[in-house]
């Protein structure tokens, strides 16, 4: 009974925070449903005088969102599992195979996180141009995988270290090879970490802008973020269409989060284990 006031305060606190988080979504939604005239001639927080649901269709078709979303989905579907597989194999090698230079290699990989994208743009453009991979999905996927490895390794190495060694011993007694140990024991046990990475990596890949804007210039290869920027002009921005595009682009990320969210917090915990 004594706990009641604390509970009420707690609920007031989280409801307030929830509202703060929802306000931008509310503005996003009402702006997406307005016409340009309505947006500019009425207060920003006013509800639409007429609901323009056709903005979504226009953003989807004329705004080419369908193409941009397809491209982002395609890149993410290839990049996320491939990147996680590469990082998981590296983390497995460093944590389970009694590797002599484990620490220096681990630090070498993790240091990759400190390298800013901007510093690498020119050499990457030269490399991709020579490899004839500029303005292609493959070129962008390679770069995304490279930049994604350090963070994925940070999460996975931490998680793998927390898996009891006895599991390895038992597997090896049963005749498991290194790869067998990786695919049959370590990966299934590391499901929460993998699920966390899928969410975070998917989000990062889906939202990535800087690299996509440099390495992709064809309209039919553009990703969601660079595509949405097309609504921003030199002298004006079509806010209703842009907001419709943003709302549409959030849906796949939301879907991925809903599917994998039950593992999310559990997976993050692994990263801080010693």
């Amino acid at each position: 009974m004594k706990k009641q006031p604390a509970r009420v305060l707690f609920y007031i606190f989280i409801i307030t925070f929830g509202l703060v988080w929802l306000i931008p979504v509310f503005f996003l939604t009402i702006t997406a449903l307005k016409s340009n005239g309505d947006l500019f001639s009425n207060p920003l927080y006013a509800l639409p005088s007429k609901y323009h649901f056709e903005n979504f269709i226009e953003a989807f078709n004329e705004g080419n969102m369908i193409v941009y979303m397809r491209n982002s989905a395609f890149i993410s579907i290839i990049k996320v599992p491939l990147g996680i597989l590469v990082a998981a194999l590296a983390a497995f090698g460093l944590t389970r195979l009694s590797f002599k230079w484990e620490k220096p290699f681990y630090i070498f990989f993790i240091l990759g996180m400190t390298i800013p994208f901007q510093a690498c743009l020119v050499p990457l453009v030269i490399m991709l141009t020579k490899a004839n991979l500029m303005n292609t999905y493959v070129g962008l996927i390679f770069i995304y995988i490279g930049f994604g490895i350090p963070f994925a390794m940070l999460i996975l190495t931490g998680f793998f270290k927390g898996i009891p060694r006895e599991l390895d011993d038992a597997a090896r007694i049963d005749g498991c090879s290194d790869l067998g140990l990786f695919f049959r024991i370590i990966l299934p046990v590391a499901k929460p970490a993998i699920a966390t990475l899928i969410i975070m990596d998917f989000l990062a890949t889906w939202n990535e802008f800087l690299l996509a804007q440099i390495f992709i210039s064809s309209d039919n290869l553009k990703t969601v973020t660079t595509g949405i920027m097309s609504f921003t002009g030199e002298y004006s921005t079509d806010y209703p269409l842009m907001m419709s595009g943003v709302l549409l682009s959030v849906l796949p990320v939301l879907l991925v989060y809903i599917i994998f969210q039950k593992h999310f917090v559990k997976g993050l915990g692994g990263a801080v284990k010693g």
């Binding site: 141009t129 020579k130 303005n135 292609t136 210039s217």
Partner: peptide, 24 residues
């Protein structure tokens, strides 16, 4: 994975906007 990569390469190559033919 190899098939997907080949397919993506083909896909992007048909864009017609690729920066091929670079005059090194």
């Amino acid at each position: 994975f190899a098939t997907i990569l080949v397919l993506t390469a083909c896909n992007s190559g048909t864009s017609g906007d690729q920066s091929d033919g670079v005059d090194q």
